[in-house]
Amino acid sequence: MLEHIAQNTQGRDFVVGDLHGEYDQLMALLEEVQFDRTCDRLFAVGDLIDRGPDSMKCLALMREPWFFSVQGNHEAMAMKAMNGEMWHQWQENGGRWVLKENPPEVAALLKEAVAKMAIAYEIETGRGRVGIVHADPPLRWQVLETQSEDVKRQSLWSRKRYSKKLETPVEGIDAVIVGHTIVANPVMLGNVRYIDTGAFTSNKLTLEPLTHVLDLLAG
């Protein structure tokens, strides 16, 4: 559930908010920062699919050695839908794109991509450890080492921290970056940074250096 990732000593690390099929927006941002696919890495906060125009292209990014994504609730929902559960819920929440694709191809790519997605990443930066989950992190980061279904559900679906504006820092990690909850601009609550700026409606996808959250906490 929690995957530890070593420091990138050869290039830069970036993090991007919920893609939701906005492949072209991502490519434009990578060009702006002169992303080097031979040594830089990109971490995503999940929800690669649904709502935007290019869900298949975004899913296929999981085949790239420089791209990493935690699982989002939309990937979890799609997996259940393709297995005969939550179909109506998926269709009502952006999954209608699948009707224009080849279902076996979608199912195969989705299964391949999700198999590579952790529920959470812990990334060593050389300046501190940055965690990534899709939705709410637990109050104690190490809880993610368990295989608890409750913790997994919280990590994929919960908005409790944001709805209650909880400033309590997550213990056991220097900073955490999340998506899931749409904000007009990235915002900090304690040591948790929210970077889903609703690219599929705002045309504003957020891409930041992974260590930017540590800069903000350092003041």
Rank of each mutant, 00 (worst) to 15 (best):
F68M: 08
Q25F: 14
A107C: 14
S148C: 08
R63A: 14
E124Y: 05
H4A: 13
G190H: 02
N8I: 01
E75V: 02
M62Y: 01
N102A: 12
R96D: 13
D54S: 15
K204I: 15
F43S: 00
G219D: 05
N83M: 11
V192C: 07
I5Q: 07
T146K: 04
N185A: 15
G95I: 06
S202Q: 13
C39V: 11
N73V: 05
A175S: 06
L189A: 09
R127K: 14
Q147M: 10
E32D: 13
V187F: 05
E122R: 13
T201G: 09
I182T: 10
D150N: 11
T211F: 06
Y23H: 12
W90N: 14
D196H: 04
W66G: 09
L205G: 03
F35G: 11
L205S: 04
P169G: 10
R51G: 02
D136I: 05
Y23Q: 07
L30F: 07
I177K: 00
G84N: 06
V192F: 00
A113Y: 00
Y23T: 10
A44H: 01
I132T: 00
V187I: 14
G21R: 06
H20L: 02
D40L: 07
G17W: 02
R161W: 06
V213I: 14
L214Q: 06
V106D: 11
S55L: 04
I182W: 04
T125C: 10
G128M: 03
L29Y: 05
T197E: 10
G179Y: 01
Y162P: 00
Q91D: 08
V33G: 01
L59Y: 03
W87D: 11
R12G: 07
G52T: 05
E101Q: 12
Q34K: 13
S148D: 15
V45H: 00
H20W: 01
G84Y: 06
E22A: 02
L217R: 08
G72W: 00
T197G: 08
Q89I: 15
R127T: 07
E122N: 09
V151Y: 08
T197V: 08
Y162Q: 08
I5L: 15
V114Y: 02
T206N: 08
K164F: 13
V151L: 11
G131Y: 09
L156A: 06
F67C: 08
F14H: 00
T211H: 07
C58N: 08
E31C: 09
V192W: 01
I49R: 01
G128V: 04
L59F: 02
P209E: 07
V176Y: 02
G131K: 10
K111G: 15
W97I: 09
L99V: 08
D24M: 09
L189K: 10
S158V: 07
F200V: 15
T38K: 11
P103T: 08
L26Q: 03
D196S: 04
L139M: 13
T206C: 14
Q7T: 10
L210C: 07
F43T: 00
H134G: 05
P138L: 04
R127S: 11
S148P: 04
W66L: 05
T211M: 12
E22G: 00
M56L: 15
L144Y: 03
I119R: 07
I177F: 01
P169K: 09
